[in-house]
Design a protein around this nucleic acid. Structure first.
Length: 579
DNA sequence: GCCGTTTTCGGCCCGACTGTTTTCAGTCG
């Protein structure tokens, strides 16, 4: 699973953390330089260990000094500068920097003036009221830090919330805010809008001419555990679940600039701002404006701002500064995959599966309601304990499907099954029975802890089987709950191309698997994809749209998504029959 | 530390909120 450069990137991340302490703040240009280098290394898709020092300096943000450190790592396994910094700042001291509200400046003073080296020291200093003796700190600072220590691990700077938990909270909040009087628009932004799989906090921007009542409602709404900030146009709260929510109110005419700014990413914003500066303009959360005259050039919508900067509008999930700005400038940016591109679903369970909740009829009716042109029902194969279905059950279902096909003539119904890939690549039923089905999607549902070689072998074996059309949720990870299986991604993707087996983009928010990293590599190799809802109840069908957003994050070309194809083409493809 | 260039040093994104002080530094995003 791990990319070849991950270890190097992790070391650079640590280097940045320690440099912030050493330099006394993240604003230091040297720190920024390390950050830029780390970002570039992270975004790099090739194997960095294969590059010479000279070749490394060709990378954006990598100069002579950084190139030397990279080579040093690959040749010696360590970086001397990092080792020196680790000696200067032991882990228990670095841990203090994770406490919200405690920045590098204060931290260094705590150490130098009060001899505080770890969390226990800090707690003792607070208890003895020693902190308030420092200039610039007072009683309130003691209380704030005391609370922050209590919450450590619950809401610290490193805490990440799975998108499956954050998204419903954000959608509800945005709906509530949008319904308030005087609110012209409300949108969640930040990493959630970019559709990262975990998020640090929820950022919401509201357009209104009267911020005060919105701020008041926000900090007093039910479920607020703590108010971190409460200003005229910006407030922050923590929910009972430990999720931080930041709310910002701007004038309606500034909404686009604000959502652009708060959606980020930071690196994407910096790229945009540099383009603005090149044109003699400035870009902030209020507007794109002329630097000399202050005259507003664009502010109301994101489209206008991108356009003024000579860029096509960049889809939110791509805003990570991994080449999207350059492509937008060159006019070679791919359009996003959208929900309206999708014409049907390919991974759907009904109550026939042990873990399904809606009947076949309810499910088909819901798909028809969504306007799908085709629907593939895929119950669990018989090898899945408790939840699997028998051959006999599938034969009966075939009759039921034929009856429903008459009632929903606009919807083409296919019978598929979700096969289980056994530890050695074995599959459910037998080849002859599987061939009777319209479609087989095969996934790993057990034996998550095999050695990588075995994991790779079992998936490759499944792909060799002629009845297997798609590999479902290829890594099997559950965000924040279970890591994916560890296999040779490139071997699997190459085999997918060789055997014409598609890779599923699973739209369930706990899965979003294939991961975006896998998608980027797959699309470069020319892999075919499907987007599946993995619905276990009729209401889950609509989450296919999240799969589209996730696909966009992986820069997937919509023409490579089989369930965006017209009915006849899709059905022929699904059955592996000639069109 | 990197970059660009009028090639060798100056610039590097920007604003809200808090706590403490009373004009601002620190933190955060």
């Amino acid at each position: 699973m791990a990319g070849p450069n991950d270890e190097l990137v992790a070391l650079f991340r640590e280097l940045v953390t320690l440099m912030i302490l050493d330099e006394g703040g993240p604003g230091s240009f040297r720190v920024r330089a390390y950050e830029n280098a780390m970002h570039e290394l992270k975004a790099h898709r090739g194997d960095l260990s294969a590059l010479t020092e000279k070749e490394l300096t060709q990378l954006d943000g990598v100069g002579k000094s950084t190139a030397k450190k990279i080579r040093e790592f690959f040749e010696t396994g360590t970086i001397a500068k990092l080792d020196a910094l680790r000696g200067k700042f032991p882990p228990e001291f670095v841990q203090l920097s994770k406490i919200p509200g405690l920045g590098p400046k204060t931290l260094m003073r705590l150490r130098d003036e009060l001899g505080i080296h770890n969390v226990d020291d800090l707690r003792a200093a607070i208890d003895s009221q020693a902190l308030r003796e420092l200039k610039g700190l007072g009683e309130k600072s003691e209380q704030k830090l005391s609370r922050a220590i209590e919450r450590m691990g619950l809401t610290g700077k490193d805490k990440r919330t799975p998108i499956a938990e954050a998204l419903p909270v954000a959608e509800r909040l945005v709906a509530d805010l949008a319904a308030m009087p005087g609110v012209q628009a409300a949108r969640y932004c930040g990493s959630l809008r970019r559709f990262r799989e975990t998020i640090g906090d929820i950022d919401i921007v509201v357009a209104s001419t009267d911020a005060a009542p919105i701020m008041e409602w926000f900090v007093a709404m039910p479920g607020v555990q703590e108010v971190i900030g409460h200003g005229e146009t910006k407030s922050s709260i923590v929910t009972g679940a430990g999720l931080q929510v930041d709310l910002r109110v701007v004038e309606p005419g500034q909404f686009g600039a604000a959502t652009l700014y708060f959606t980020g990413s930071k690196a994407h914003n910096i790229k945009l701002r540099q383009r603005a500066i090149e044109r003699g303009w400035t870009l902030n959360e209020y507007a794109l404006s002329d630097a000399a005259t202050g005259k507003v050039i664009a502010a109301a919508t994101e489209d206008e701002i991108y356009d003024a900067l000579g860029l096509a509008t960049i889809p939110e999930p791509m805003r990570e500064d991994t080449g999207e700005v350059e492509r937008a400038a060159a006019g070679t940016l791919l359009p996003p995959v959208t929900a309206s591109d999708l014409r049907g679903d390919v991974h759907v369970h009904t109550s026939l599966s042990g873990d399904g909740h809606s009947t076949l009829e309810q499910t088909v009716a819901a798909a028809a309601e969504l306007g799908w042109e085709y629907l593939v029902i895929t119950e669990h194969g018989e090898n899945l304990a408790i939840n699997g279905v028998s051959r006999e059950q599938l034969r009966v279902q075939r009759t039921d499907l034929a009856a429903l096909a008459d009632r929903f003539p606009q919807l083409t119904l296919l019978q598929g099954v979700e096969l289980n890939i056994g530890p050695h690549g074995e599959l459910d039923y037998d080849a002859a029975f599987r061939a009777e089905l319209d479609f087989c999607i095969a996934g790993v549902h057990s034996h998550f802890d095999l050695e990588p070689e075995q994991q790779t072998a079992r998936v490759l074996a499944a792909m060799e089987d002629p009845t297997v059309r798609v590999i479902a949720h290829p890594t099997g990870r559950l965000i924040g709950r279970r890591p994916g299986i560890d296999f040779d991604i490139d071997a699997v993707l190459s085999k997918a191309v060789e055997t014409d087996t598609a890779i599923e983009i699973n739209a369930a928010l706990w899965r979003l698997d294939a991961t975006d990293d896998l998608l980027l590599r797959a699309r470069d190799l020319g892999v075919t994809f499907v987007i599946g809802s993995d619905a276990h109840r009729a209401g889950d069908l609509e989450r296919l749209r999240w799969g589209a957003v996730h696909a966009t994050r992986g820069w997937v070309d919509v023409t490579a998504v089989a369930n965006s194809w017209p009915r006849d083409k899709f059905v022929a493809w699904a059955r592996r029959s000639q069109p």
